[in-house]
Design a protein around this nucleic acid. Sequence first.
DNA 1: ATGTCGCGTTCTTTGTAGGGCATTCGGTAG
DNA 2: CTACCGAATGCCCTACAAAGAACGCGACAT
Lengths: 118, 118
Amino acid sequence: MPYKERDIEKQYFTIGEVAAQFNVAPSLIRFWETEFEELRPRKSKKGNRLYTPQDIDIFRTIYHLVKERGYTIPGARDLMKQKGPQLKEKIDVIQSLEKVRKFMVTMKKELEAISKAQ
Amino acid sequence: MPYKERDIEKQYFTIGEVAAQFNVAPSLIRFWETEFEELRPRKSKKGNRLYTPQDIDIFRTIYHLVKERGYTIPGARDLMKQKGPQLKEKIDVIQSLEKVRKFMVTMKKELEAISKAQ
DNA sequence: ATGTCGCGTTCTTTGTAGGGCATTCGGTAG
DNA sequence: CTACCGAATGCCCTACAAAGAACGCGACAT
């Protein structure tokens, strides 16, 4: 086999390898997969899970939150959801603030108009 | 009874008052008392719990971590031990921001109502 | 004043739903 | 023969709630 293909394939880890790396049971990894939609690795034709380093990063994050920081699964899930869309959330807030600002500017003008009229 | 004594006593809240304030059952407060050594209020001669405002601050911190952030009890406990006093400050800030947020949400609704009315 | 009868609140102790996995089972691929 | 699969089931604590006894207080009769 040309090393080119071998290298490409070895981008992936099996569930057993991931489990060994974190010293947890494969069943835990499968269970978390049902709890965290971020943790859905690609699968082989046969159906075996193929974990990329990015997948492992996600697993590590969950592991950190649940096993080291002491979050409940819902607590960790909520935090995960906020981290990706963090940027979107910020932008939403900024745009809300922009609208409030415009509102206040027009209101200021109206107030000035009223006070001058008197 | 001399008002002197009465004033001194009214520094304290009963477990029922604290429970009502946070909309939780008294049993939860007693349970957390067994889990968090920080939450050990003074007791009357009769054995009733007497909560100071400081005790309530501690309860609020625990409530925030467990009920709003989604920490397990051990997770919250570790965090309390690590940065107990700092935590209160942070939570004060967070809750101030929550109030600002609520204000802005209601203002947004009003703005929408106004724009639709035109 | 004083017994006493509820009634609400608190207490401690005991019970329990469900959260968080592990195990088991029958099957497939390498 | 080993590692993996999905699905079902089992199981042990976690995180509380409910149960039951005891106390205190106002009302009302004595």
